[in-house]
Design a protein around this nucleic acid. Structure first.
Length: 431
RNA sequence: GUGGAUGUAGCUCAACUGGCAGAGCGCUUGAUUGUGGUUCAAGUGGUUGGGGGUUCAAGUCCCCUCAUCCACCCCA
């Protein structure tokens, strides 16, 4: 005999229920609205990709590839991975579908679930959701500016006002290489003061030491050479234009010398938006330029820039904005169904018909079919569904060819002709 | 991967130095015929996350395990 077992979601993965799902849909609609204003088209790539795509794209040295991927072999022994991020798949789609032969630059956005095997905590889940956008094919700084302006427009429409925008440039491959060497030489004498992680990064990826939170390491870095001083001419000019023009287009930002990102493909402009209202996982979005990614994946040398928004975190924040929550509730309220209650078992079919007529008129409607329960109990159900309007129909109404329409909010009720009652209900709802 | 906190009814939580597992909310029904929200009454609710141990006796003490949350880490 099978033991009684209670199934539940696997670690780090959660049901998205009711209000939360509505809030998710709300930010998704806003994203579609705003991004399409800037000429972006929606795409959806598969949840599963070849493992190699992320190893080459995101980078072997990154934490994501190193230890956070859901990787498995399929039945033919191919190594597949649940996507841990969105940019590499889009770059793959760019190459596979030969977007280079279409209008340039390519501008796409996307949304969906992503997976990373990490220890769950507030704002960090094993299945999480991102809304992202990519602009591929234009190397110039105005693309960076426009992308950020669009992003802030989106966040503004959601009701955010004062957000911290951090900006930096990690330079081109050559300047980063050079700087990494300087940093390594600078830190080498203090090797023993570094934590185990940073010591390891000294070899693999010295740049990542810059965003350490360890107080001792931060202290050390005070005197370190600055990445920004080592930028080559083109990268420096690019960054200068981005900064100047962002100011001109009304984007408040702060240059953050320690802002480097965890994905290896970033070049030049990188940015991050954080919120103090989120606990330890305070980054709600991050992004940057990736001028070498497409080439790394075996394609031509095509530049790109993009961002990814942590949708779960974003929604948590949106729900903390009083105005947004009110709007969401009002919207949900507007779609509350009319409740049809047939009185007596032989009137269930009539109930179904009445509900169908309401729906045909575009009015959400539910029908309480369980006529064995007392009318009282069924009215109570209608109230619990937060219905404002209840339609009653039974023997009396059939005789007089009328329906009873009750307004729960007012506590009033009236009798209206059966024929064309849906239009009458519609009129009262919109009144 | 490391550390800390917490698991008792559908939900929020009680239960002393081990001594009969409880309350509120919810849910169901009723307070005479076909009228919700308030009130009153009755009813429904549990292998105390799971397993083992100590004890006359374990929700309580010990061990193991699982899960959740928080932080480190990582990043969205």
């Amino acid at each position: 005999m099978a033991a009684k077992r209670r199934f539940r979601t696997v670690k780090g993965m959660h049901d998205l229920l009711f209000g939360k799902a509505g809030a998710f849909a709300f930010v998704e609609e806003k994203a579609r609205e705003v991004f399409s204003l800037y000429g972006y088209d929606e795409v959806r790539t598969p949840v599963v990709e070849e493992t190699e795509l992320f190893v080459r794209g995101v980078g072997e040295a990154s934490e994501i590839v190193g230890k956070q991927m859901y990787t498995f072999d399929d039945k033919k022994g191919r190594s597949l991975t649940l996507r841990p991020e969105g940019t590499a798949p889009v770059a793959r789609a760019y190459l596979q579908n030969n977007w280079a032969s279409g209008p340039q630059p390519v501008k796409v956005f996307y949304m969906g679930p992503y997976f990373r095997y990490e220890r769950p905590q507030e704002g960090r889940y094993r299945q999480f959701h991102q809304i992202g956008a990519e602009l591929i094919g234009d190397p110039g700084p105005y693309s960076d500016v426009e992308l950020l302006v669009m992003l802030l427009r989106f966040l503004g429409e959601l009701g955010f006002e004062d957000l911290e925008v951090g900006l930096n440039s990690v330079g081109d491959a050559e300047c980063r290489q050079r700087y990494s060497q300087y940093l390594r030489e600078f830190l080498e004498p203090y090797r023993d003061d570094l934590g185990a992680d940073s010591r390891r990064r000294l070899e693999t990826n010295p740049l990542r030491i810059l965003d350490t939170k360890a107080p001792r390491e931060r202290e050390l870095l005070e005197g370190a050479p600055r990445l920004r001083d080592e930028l080559g001419g083109p990268a420096r000019d690019h960054f200068q234009v981005v900064c100047d023009e962002l100011g001109r287009f009304g984007v408040d930002f702060e240059i953050d010398d320690r802002l480097v990102r965890g994905l290896d493909y970033y070049t030049r402009t990188v940015f991050e938006i954080t919120s103090t209202a989120l606990g330890a996982q305070n980054a709600i979005l991050g992004g940057g330029r990736y001028d070498g990614l497409i080439a790394d994946l075996g394609g031509p040398s095509v530049p790109g820039i993009g961002f990814a928004i942590g949708q779960d975190r974003l929604v948590d924040l949106v729900l903390k904005i009083p105005g947004a929550r009110k709007r969401l509730n009002a919207e949900a309220h507007r779609r509350r169904p009319v409740c049809v209650i047939p009185i007596g078992g032989s009137y269930r079919r009539h109930g179904m018909e009445l509900a169908q007529e309401l729906r045909a008129a575009g009015i959400p409607a539910i029908c309480e079919f369980d006529s064995l329960r007392p009318l009282k109990a069924r009215l109570k159900q209608a109230a619990r569904h937060d219905c404002q309007w209840v339609v009653l129909f039974g023997e009396e109404e059939e005789k007089s060819q009328e329906v009873v329409l009750r307004n729960f909010y007012e506590g009033s009720q009236e009798t209206i002709p059966r024929d064309g009652f849906a239009a009458a209900v519609a009129a009262r709802i919109s009144a």
